[in-house]
Write a protein that binds this DNA or RNA. Structure first.
Lengths: 209, 209, 209, 209
DNA sequence: AATGAATGAGCGTTCATTCAT
DNA sequence: GATGAATGAACGCTCATTCAT
């Protein structure tokens, strides 16, 4: 009904160029506030204040409050997840690829703690508004892991008697739980240092021989 | 804020017997509504209607809306998690104990899907109101896993070169991610059947030999 | 979606009896405010204040702001219009019936000036929300006039070469315009005294012989 | 409030020629939008879009939103009503003058349905902003009718025992109600064809003999 | 104890108006 | 003159909480 931005206004604005880039300022502010207070406890006023704009300005860039979350996934999260593939491609064998994937994953989420908090919260609440976005981002990741596993099986470095549908989710879940633990600890230790021990557990298991 | 029942009223009531089930009816109703709509989208009115009581009645048993969530963890979740120890104790060796723990965990969460949904959502949102409860429940679980791991190391069935602090979280995280995947799938398949493949991954890892 | 009052809550409340009757207090207050400020310029707060209730209370009795207008037509206006038939039935011949109708019409609208103002405004703005209500009330009136005209034609007191569809609207329109003129004048003169001259114009026309 | 153009800018502009049509484009657009959505449901943005100008441009030609309505009456309505006198002057006797007046009235309002809709709505809502304009336009019309009536009385074609103050309003009201009925019907039939039957009712009345 | 009508603070959203470009 | 991004006051509506019955 409304003629509001089905195509995000940021394009129109970035052509106008300059310093403004209010779209990103608002998005970053929102994620920061969401992380601090929880999505549902955050108000438009708080986000506007944090972004240094008027309340109404937010509605020039986002359809409504929910849309901020949708854009967060469409823009920010998808961008981060696409970085992972780069690092995976740099490695030659699948074990190394797995290392690179997990390391980069932990790096990016450590670097952007607010994003990590919001991502964890939203993907575990059964939010109807961002369900498609979550599925898409998840699929990107799971497909990437599946590729690595299959390649490892060809190389002979990974067991062939694995149900890949389970394994890929197992790996994603374990990494995300490492992130979740780190967040619950207040982000005090170095998350990236968890990378190698985590991979070691994936590969060798906890069993003796 | 108010000086109302910091000691939950249910004790006073359960000694009186009989009507004390209202406390539980409300709690079950709340979990059911929370699971369906999300904690923040649920209203006191909806819970009251589902419990078959008046809105005001809820405030005779709970300090406020947040308190319902607190009681959910204090009463319901803690009770379920204490079941796990029983099953662990039934087993003789640590590998079997791990099997029993994970199977029972999946069983209980499959049996009580609403609880599972709420548990997943709340433990991943950075909620300040239930943080102590989550820590306590987590600790119960992690301690149990740690005991099992340590016993397994004594028995020789589990590698000694493990950082237990990581491993126990790794296992909890992997199980929870299995639950989360099951929930996202709509609870269509049998969650308990994931138990053995999951344990296999823990023990043997994905690496070849 | 909401379980709100499709059946007006006033029934539930009037059984509770007593002085409250908030439904009518709010309705009267709303009409009064609407008349003073115009429907669209009136706020829920103003109505609540005039009714002596809290803003939120209004939503216990009305679905939303529009619903107040709908209820105004369903309850108040329809009730007034049904009075007209009584007076019409008291008269023996159709000319007298027409006199009674017009007199009572002017009487009621003079007695309830706020209602008159709101009625005039709403029936002439092409309001989608009360269109069915307006049609219904109009039909009641037009049917009544048509009956009178037809009876007069049988009696021989009214011309037979009339297009009743036009005449009945002509009469309603002329009466309403008398009301409108009275309102524009500030309600200073006696509206009811217009009744006889108006009927005289209907009957005899302005033509000489 | 502001010291801006109390003397409408259009004069300044029309002497400059050329672009002055923006004033009229905005005015026409406004009337069209007002008719479609109702005055209060219409936004400056909608009007600007329909006029093909920027929102801010409207404020170069109109003090504020209310002023558009004021200008509508001052410019558009007054212009249309002044046409009526022309047609009245063309006729020789007062009955014919009355015919011409009513026919032209219905013609113009049928031709310009948007204007008709807005005119009906605004003159019946008790709007304080256009009250003087409405009075002035009404007076033009009523004076014209009064002249005709008086002339008819001199000619002997119209009854002398009439209260002219009532009759002139009666006639205006009846014509307006014909327009209103036509609008409520969706403008489906030919409004101008109502002219003769309407006049017949004025002149001869509904009474027999 | 139980009720549910009443409250009013608080929030999302709209939109007339301004003003730097 | 013309633009349209930005503003923020204002409003409709929700809902946790209270309290008279």
């Amino acid at each position: 009904m409304t003629s509001k931005n089905d195509v995000p206004r940021r394009f129109a604005i970035s052509t106008r160029g300059k310093t403004s880039d209010k779209y990103h300022r608002i998005l970053e502010a929102a994620v920061s506030v969401f992380a601090r207070q929880g999505v549902h406890q955050s108000t438009i006023s708080q986000i506007a204040k944090e972004a240094g704009v008027a309340d109404g300005t937010i509605y020039l860039y986002f359809k409504n409050k929910d849309d901020i979350l949708v854009q967060f996934f469409n823009y920010k999260t998808k961008q981060v997840f696409s970085l992972f593939r780069e690092d995976v491609d740099k490695a030659d064998n699948s074990i190394e690829k797995l290392h690179n994937l997990v390391r980069r994953h932990l790096e990016e989420f450590q670097r952007n703690k607010s994003m990590a908090v919001v991502y964890q919260a939203v993907t575990h609440e059964n939010s109807v508004v961002v369900k498609p976005q979550i599925r898409e981002v998840s699929k990107m990741y799971l497909d990437l892991v599946a590729e690595i596993i299959e390649k490892g099986q060809e190389e002979g470095s990974i067991r062939r008697d694995l149900y890949i549908g389970l394994v890929k989710r197992f790996i994603l879940g374990a990494v995300e739980s490492a992130i979740n633990n780190w967040l619950h600890s207040g982000g005090k230790y170095d998350l990236v240092s968890m990378s190698d021990p985590l991979i070691d557990l994936f590969i060798r298991g906890i069993g003796n021989k």
